[in-house]
Design a protein around this nucleic acid. Structure first.
Length: 531
DNA sequence: AATACTGGCGCC
DNA sequence: AAAGGGCGCCAGTATT
């Protein structure tokens, strides 16, 4: 059974309607008295809940409701609209309903942004969405049934991921503000007054100025820095750190140190701490499907860029552990499975080390650069030469990414393994340089998007396993190929085993009998910085 | 003053 | 050693 659920306006009744698997109503709409009714329906029918969007589930999570399965209509609409080649059409529920009923013009979902502050003054109550939800869902079920099986798996996995995302935000990543403060103080000096410059930054700025003969230079201003170097006889194109490193001038060292610490201060300093950490938890908002490749994005707090230097602030509660699991060399393994070039990923050993041993004189860095260049479309400098080695060793894998690049350059559609469709090129792709850029994009898309869907399936599987085992372990963080769980110490081993099993199942779900393995590196630690 | 863009860099 | 894919965020800068 499926049950469509419209949480309705804040404080108002929650409305539901029972559906069959094709989405046809089994009963008239009904109102629920409260979240407990959802729990009862879950227990009685174990339905797949049909939600309009990720947000629909938020209030339920806050109320402590836990559901097993979901179908997220807006996420699925995005997948289906792109798969049908109808790019640029909005995939909000209202737009999807209008499209279904042949109404024009399609409403822009941004106009109905529930976070829009102006909406607070809008006297019109939100519409009853249940009818739209039911109609669009039924149309999606029929489209999914008519299409390839991969899309059904992708729709289910992405919907499950939306549940995981809301649950992660609710749980929050354990974050010790006191440790964060100590780390900042160690690197930057004592915390400055609001808006002030920390002592270490001020000292480095002074060193930079002194190195330029005492003339004031704002190290935060690229233009200013370029002018200062020009006066000193160094004509630079940019102030990127790798370009600065090639310059012999006494200002370079303090400037590089300044840039690194200034970034830490502005992006993840005391103001970040005050804004994003509450009650010992960092709660970013995850946007499932927020990246065209199907990777998640986040809103607020730069959650996917937590600097290594601060990871010590992520600490399990007393008596608890962090189970930190990352998929080892996920993208090259995905490429091996996609292309059937199994020589690329023969076992569970570190791919880069193995490749380095036979081809690159034990230089793991070279092997990694070569493989990444193959997937990102790099060709400059040393990469070109390294790629030659790969073409000889892994012709099928290289042919696969080259084919994806050619498809992009020549304007054909490119899809991930399960069927996520790459958005088309923007106008201007006739220019040769733009066509090549497009080729790099699609070359990367097939690998990155397939890796992202592997990770979605992993999350869905992991969630299922933890629920089935009634595990107290909670997923609290996810970034691309890495998941962190917070678990009581005595439950950590089982949680680690669940992650490994979920990874294995994800490989099976995507690639069936492929011999390519997707090993997880799992560590059970108290601090995120510990190996 | 508000908004949009750019350069630079953090993470994968 | 060189600068290839994806993002989000900040300060500086340009525009309105």
């Amino acid at each position: 059974m499926r049950i469509a659920l419209d949480p309705g306006p804040e404080g108002g009744p929650v409305r539901v309607q029972r559906l069959d698997e094709r989405g046809a109503p089994l009963a008239p709409p009904a109102e629920l008295a409260g979240p407990l009714d959802v729990v009862a329906l879950e227990r009685e029918h174990a339905p797949r809940w049909v939600f309009a969007r990720q947000r629909s589930y938020r209030e339920l999570v806050r109320a402590g409701v836990d559901v097993a399965r979901a179908h997220d209509v807006e996420l699925v609409e995005g997948l289906l609209v792109a798969a049908a080649g109808r790019f640029g059409h909005p995939h909000g529920l209202a737009a999807a309903a209008a499209r279904l009923h042949g109404r024009e013009p399609e409403p822009d979902p941004r106009a109905a942004d529930p976070d829009d502050r102006l909406a607070l003054f809008d006297p019109t109550p939100p519409p009853d969405e249940l009818a739209d939800l039911v109609a669009v869902h039924a149309a999606q079920q029929s489209a999914l049934a008519a299409g390839p099986a991969g899309m059904r798996l992708l729709a289910a996995a992405e919907s499950a991921a939306a549940l995981v995302a809301e649950e992660m935000t609710a749980a929050g990543l354990p974050w010790r503000a006191d440790v964060h403060d100590e780390l900042l103080t160690g690197l930057l000096g004592r915390r400055p007054a609001l808006g002030g410059r920390p002592p270490r930054l001020a000292a480095l700025a002074d060193e930079v100025r002194a190195a330029f003969g005492g003339r004031p230079v704002n190290p935060d201003s690229p233009a200013d820095v370029l002018r200062a170097f020009a006066r000193a006889g160094h004509e630079l194109e940019t102030t990127r750190s790798w370009e600065l490193r090639r310059v012999e001038h006494p200002a370079v060292e303090p400037l590089l140190a300044y840039k690194e610490l200034a970034r830490l201060h502005s992006a993840h300093g005391w103001s970040w701490l005050r804004t994003w950490v509450r009650d010992g938890r960092f709660r970013p908002e995850y946007v499932v499907g927020g990246v065209v490749s199907g990777r998640w994005a986040t809103r607020g707090g730069g959650a996917l860029q937590i600097p290594r230097s601060l990871r010590g602030a992520v600490r399990a509660d007393p008596g608890w552990r962090l189970v930190v699991a990352d998929a080892a060399q996920l993208e090259p393994r995905v490429l091996a499975a996609l292309s059937g070039d199994h020589a690329l990923a023969p076992g569970e050993d570190d791919l880069y080390t193995a490749l380095a041993a036979t081809e690159f004189g034990d230089d793991r860095g070279k092997a990694k650069l070569a493989l990444l260049s193959a997937m990102y479309g790099g060709s400059g400098g040393e990469a070109g030469q390294l790629l030659g080695v790969l073409r000889r060793r892994f012709p099928a894998a290289m042919a696969f990414v080259d084919g994806a690049a050619r498809d992009g350059e020549e304007g054909r559609l490119v899809r991930s393994h399960l069927g996520r469709t790459c958005p088309p090129a923007r106008p201007g792709h006739e220019r040769p340089d733009r066509a090549r850029a497009r080729g790099r994009f699609t070359r990367n898309f097939v690998v990155q998007a397939t890796a992202a869907e592997w990770a979605l399936v992993l999350l869905a599987e992991l969630r299922g396993r933890l629920r089935a085992a009634a595990s107290p372990a909670v997923p609290v963080f996810f970034q691309h190929d890495e998941v962190v769980l917070h678990a009581p110490a005595e439950a950590a081993q089982d949680a680690a085993a669940a992650v490994r099993a979920a990874a294995e199942t994800a490989g099976l779900r995507l690639f069936g009998s492929s011999p390519v393995r997707f090993p997880m590196q799992v560590r059970i630690v108290e601090g995120y910085d510990q190996r």
